[in-house]
Design a protein around this nucleic acid. Sequence first.
RNA 1: CGGGGUAUGGCGCAGUCUGGUAGCGCACCUGCUUUGGGAGCAGGGGGUCGGGGGUUCGAAUCCCUCUACCCCGACCA
Length: 572
Amino acid sequence: MRTSRLLLATEREDPSDAEIVSHRLMIRAGLVRRLAAGLYTWLPLGLRVLRKIEDIVRDEMDRAGAQEVLMPAVQPAELWMESGRWDHFGPELLRLRDRHERDFCVGPTHEEVITDIVRREVRSYRQLPLNLYQIQTKFRDEVRPRFGVMRAREFIMKDAYSFDLDEAGSRRSYEAMRDAYRRIFARTGLDFRVVEADSGAIGGSRSEEFHVLAESGEDDIAFNDAGTYAANLELTPAPPPPSRGPAAETMREVSTPDVRTISEVSRRLGVPPERCLKTLFVEGDAGPVALVLRGDHDLNLVKASRLDGVRAPVALASPDAVREAAGAGPGAVGPVGLGVPVVVDRWAAAARDFVCGANRDDAHLAGVNWGRDAPEPATADLRNAIEGDPSPDGRGAISIRRGIEVGHVFQLGRKYSESMHAVCLDESGRARTLEMGCYGIGVSRIAAAAIEQSHDENGIVWPDAIAPFEVALLPVNAHRSGRVRDRSEALYEALRAAGIEVLLDDRAIRPGVMFSEMDLIGIPHRLVLGERRLDEGAIEYRRRRGGETEIVPLEEAVAHVAARLDRRSGEG
RNA sequence: CGGGGUAUGGCGCAGUCUGGUAGCGCACCUGCUUUGGGAGCAGGGGGUCGGGGGUUCGAAUCCCUCUACCCCGACCA
């Protein structure tokens, strides 16, 4: 490709509405343009990246024995009513009505459609196992789309669905997908982690997420240095608490006007945050439920949602509801003499001589002890694991990093096959409900995640495998030098003939502009052809990622570049 | 959903408080000079000032209203 024919829509200034680096760079490098909130057009350069990612995904899915299909984006409501999700999916499901007043939705995922296909087409166990996938546009009407294509409403997803006769087969299908995903993310050149994930919401037996490590990620993942434990922080159990010591203080009420937060309480009373307990009211099935944690710990919403009597998803009670239940506003409530169900985190239950709200405005209690001043509490693991906690598998300590979820694998069980009657006959002629798995990859999100992980002050630094072009060929002032022009044209053809994806900058512009633009769009390898080097029969080669400039004989240029391309085939 | 903010040429912004001929930088077009890390000079094109309504002799500017978009929050307890 020549820059003179490429829609190179680069910007010199950062867009005003882009917050994170990948969003800024995707706009500036001319990869995408926003059409409306959460809706993006992929420009030629961006689409090349997307296609590279798709090719890797397709290659590995096919290698793993999956078959590609393509399902409609718009789906009839009947299928969703059959699975029960028409009523349960909520406002993220974009619903629409056609001219005949029939209800449809724009698919946020395709379990219903694929299950419908399979129940119609698969009759015998001989047709199993079956794994069907597609790479297609999804729509989820996010409350708050943000970060460009990272959390868009419309996005490209690879979704695969496996069907097996029994659980053992389903587990094999799941393992095969898990392995394929490892190969896919390894080939894209991203630094990723496989983490245990919450399968509660969809109700499967096993689930893991694939996360790209990046500060801008929206998920917290916990892992140990040994590499033997990795899980979404939502799921990471906190370690067992220390034992509680004997009470040393007597309970007393202290006046604490204008003191609300733990840090204020701690400072005012001179008590460290770990001995200041906080009491959170969440909505429960029968009025609010109080959850008590140490001041230095955070409530884990997934753990809380699993408590009996707590409404899922967890919602904090309104300040009015808190006042009605406790007789004081949030900030002055505590477990002593409280008339609502109380569940206490194990670490908070191990506290002694602690501070908590007095259930009277502007007052706290100090020197409080369980069993004496408040009843021995019901306990549960409610807090998030924190940096330095012992790893749940007993090996080393936990580190917590931010991650961007780019893939998710699920063993679904029979959730959809049962409600939608997807059955087939086994060897004995008996009808068996199929075991399903589903497996997603955020194709468009991978492009953004790659930039989050790999950029510098000059722009994007693409991994070779997903770069829009492998090498940029930059003739210096070719419009003034027939020699430079002729040699660069010849080299361009030679690179193409060698199967190398080259972008020739054949515009009559100053070299500085070329360098800046090629850095911005992140082409990983660069050849610069100028009169000076040409006199020596040489050319300059440089790697985008912090490389030194190398002087290479012109006739060796193609081989030099070819030897430096990182083309991971996925073999081995 | 709650809170905050923004909307002026393709992009980034000033002008709005205090009403009076719509501006700057970048980008774009032409010419000359320049030419190894986003050149200089000169000339030029391009704007219903988000939409609607109102006040006024006169509205980007004041009032009402609608819309779009962005940010923060949904863990103070």
